[in-house]
Design a protein around this nucleic acid. Structure first.
Length: 646
DNA sequence: GCAAGGTC
């Protein structure tokens, strides 16, 4: 009797397992539930296969019980403490242990990246705890398409232990630096709230701080424009040579123009402008758009995840901005015909050729975010998230928008004026994502026409500082600086809000956030900048390449952390006072004006809103809202006059 | 009570 090979395939997540099983079984795979975990099984001539969905990492590193007591644990000891590995979720480990005795080989088929390699190794270790000798191989596919997956399974390679070790090193370094420095600052400041520090969160906080400082240091520069209102209905022309950085320039232009009573058309220049459609959308772009439309980025990701699980959109965590050739664009369009986007689908289907745009980043993790179905009526905010995804997808398939632009030159008295207008000729992709800034058209003009001059005026303005970060712009900045990943950036931003390091939709640092960055910068410039991430990336590459062992990287990192800890301790008193004062100012709004005994302090509702409450609560129930810039406002609108902040 | 990284 021929022995049938029993294989266990490890997938990174449920959807990946389903897809792998479908492709490899040519649609014959069955979903089964064993040990409380869904998995897929199928049989071929070669043997029987189980495709097992993991759920990302199934092993977490944390410190052992012996160093959990903050007060009793010396931080230098913590630096050198080996973390323990925690099985989570436990159910997956139990399921793997249950399967292990009945299999002949393991194929690691997790995402083809560094974390994916470690996720696969975590599961493989769990299996080998039961079956030490089970052979394992690795499938490397750059897309979950039939051709790619089948190719990968024809040429299985070895598990890349060095790559997994690089990821494991990152886990340990992040934990050590985060835990040691968080404990140090929290204890040094005697703070009841956590003062957290991390390789990604602290440089991100510094980005907010830097933008704030740019604004603080910004000297607005006044300038003047001379405007002429011409014709009926009137349009606006600007004096040539402007804007004027000096009022006398504007005065001179006004004086020269003031000699005339009408405007003579002296020059007409018409030209065509093309505006290329946007590129396919990755996570960062999606979050920027969601943020622009008033959605918080963490919320937007949660909604996108839900739409993905429900089959309406593709996987929302991706860096890719180039559709893979395998993307079934025609099929997707067919599915979107049964939706309110039908008119746009019709336009695309009537094009002689559909050529999607390409963005700058081509990765193999997942395709750019695109719709996969037209779900029935969605409620907010799902409707907005789906709308962002569909419109962007459709826009990438439509031709450029073309405009007829017109520059008209006028002679008024002895001065030259210019008016511009731009009108849509072919809407192209702009039919699905309309341009919010449109310019009013100019009336039909010919050189030599004389139009009535209705008035001259001078407009004074000032140069503006760069805007505060929004969640969207902050996440884009993080990506540019190499901070965090597509899956974590929005979480880091949410964490900074939760820690009360930042506040507002136009993001500013709080007193505590500001003090924390300012206190750390002189002692740990690498920790408050992307420097630490860059160094770590370099070291991980060296580990993955086999140039250096994990142990030596950990040793170097621990030495550096001991050194930083020593430097911080030397300045502990100064740093502590600095942050403590700032944090207290941030929370404490002075004596309570109602009872006179307590103080008004910043508190949070369960839903995250800040308000001022009396420390004597519930004896004193005084409460106030906090307005822009920390101004106290009455709890009920209009019943009391606002009080000035102390 | 610490981080950042997967995914739900």
């Amino acid at each position: 009797m021929r022995v049938r090979l029993r294989s266990l395939l490890l997938a990174e997540k449920f959807s990946a397992a389903l897809r792998l099983a479908t492709i490899l079984s040519h649609g014959t795979a069955k979903k089964v539930r064993a040990d409380g975990v869904s998995q897929f099984t199928f049989s071929t001539e070669a043997g029987d296969t189980i495709v097992f969905p993991l759920r990302g990492h199934i092993v977490a590193v944390d410190y052992p019980e012996s160093v959990r007591d903050w007060a009793a644990t010396d931080l230098d000891r913590l630096v050198d403490t080996e973390p323990v590995e925690v099985e989570a979720p436990l159910a997956l480990h139990e399921a793997l242990r249950g399967i292990a005795p009945g299999i002949d080989e393991v194929v690691v088929a997790t995402d083809f990246d560094r974390e994916g390699e470690l996720i696969g190794v975590e599961a493989l270790r769990a299996i080998r705890a039961v079956r030490p000798d089970v052979p394992a191989r690795r499938a490397r596919f750059s897309a979950m398409t039939p051709s790619e997956v089948l190719r990968a399974f024809e040429g299985l390679c070895d598990v890349d232990w060095a790559l997994a070790e690089a990821a494991a090193t990152r886990e340990r370094i992040d934990l050590a630096w985060g835990a040691v420095l968080t404990r140090f600052l929290t204890l040094a400041c005697g703070s009841e709230v956590l003062l957290s520090v991390g390789r990604v969160q602290t440089p991100t906080l510094a980005l907010v701080r830097e933008r704030e400082q740019e604004r603080e240091g910004f000297a607005p520069r006044p300038f003047w424009d001379v405007l002429a209102d011409i014709g009926d209905p009137p349009f606006v022309a600007r004096a040539a040579g402007g804007p004027f950085w000096d009022p006398s320039g504007a005065e001179a232009a006004t004086a020269r123009a003031g000699l005339g009573a009408d405007a003579l058309v002296v020059r007409l220049e018409a030209y065509e402008e093309r505006e290329a459609p946007p590129s396919p959308m990755n996570t960062t772009r999606f979050l920027a758009e969601a943020s622009r439309r008033g959605l918080g980025t963490a919320r937007a990701m949660a909604v996108a995840q839900d739409l993905y699980v429900r089959g309406a959109i593709s996987y929302p965590r991706t860096d890719n901005t180039v559709y893979p050739p395998s993307l079934p664009i025609a099929d997707i369009l067919l599915r979107l015909r049964d939706s309110s986007y039908r008119e746009h689908v019709d336009r695309i289907q009537s094009l002689p050729e559909v050529r999607p745009t390409r963005g700058p980043v081509s990765t193999t993790d997942h395709p750019p975010i695109h719709p996969t179905a037209a779900p029935p009526r969605l409620r907010e905010p799902a409707a907005t998230v789906y709308d962002i995804v569909v419109r962007r997808f459709l826009a990438t398939l439509l031709p450029p928008a073309t405009y007829r632009a017109l520059a008209a030159g006028f002679r008024i008295g002895d001065a030259d004026f210019v008016a511009h207008a731009r009108g849509l000729v072919e809407s192209g992709w702009r039919s699905v994502i309309p341009d919010e800034r449109s310019t009013p058209p100019l009336p039909p003009l010919q050189v030599g026409d004389v139009l009535a001059l209705r008035g001259l005026r001078t407009e004074a303005a000032r140069t503006r500082p760069p805007p505060f970060h929004t969640q969207g712009s902050l996440i884009q900045a993080m990506e540019r600086m190499g901070l965090g990943t597509k899956s974590t950036r929005h979480e880091i931003v949410a964490l900074l809000y939760r820690r009360e390091y930042i506040e507002g939709r136009a993001i500013r640092t709080t007193g505590a956030g500001r003090a924390l960055v300012d206190a750390l910068v002189p002692h740990a410039p690498d920790l408050t900048s992307p420097g630490m991430t860059r160094t770590l990336e370099g070291r991980m590459s060296a580990i993955a390449a086999g140039d250096v062992p994990m142990a030596s990287v950990l040793r170097d990192s621990r030495d550096e952390l001991h050194g930083l800890l020593a430097a911080l301790r030397e300045n502990e008193a100064v740093i502590a006072r600095w942050i403590r004062d700032a944090a207290r100012l941030h929370r404490d709004f002075g004596p309570c004006d109602a009872c006179g005994r307590g103080r008004l302090v910043r508190r949070r509702t369960r839903t995250g809103w800040s308000f001022l409450g009396c420390t004597e609560y519930p004896r004193c129930r005084r409460r106030l809202r906090i307005g822009r810039g920390g101004v106290r406002l009455p709890w009920t609108l209009g019943t009391e006059a606002p009080l000035a902040a102390p």
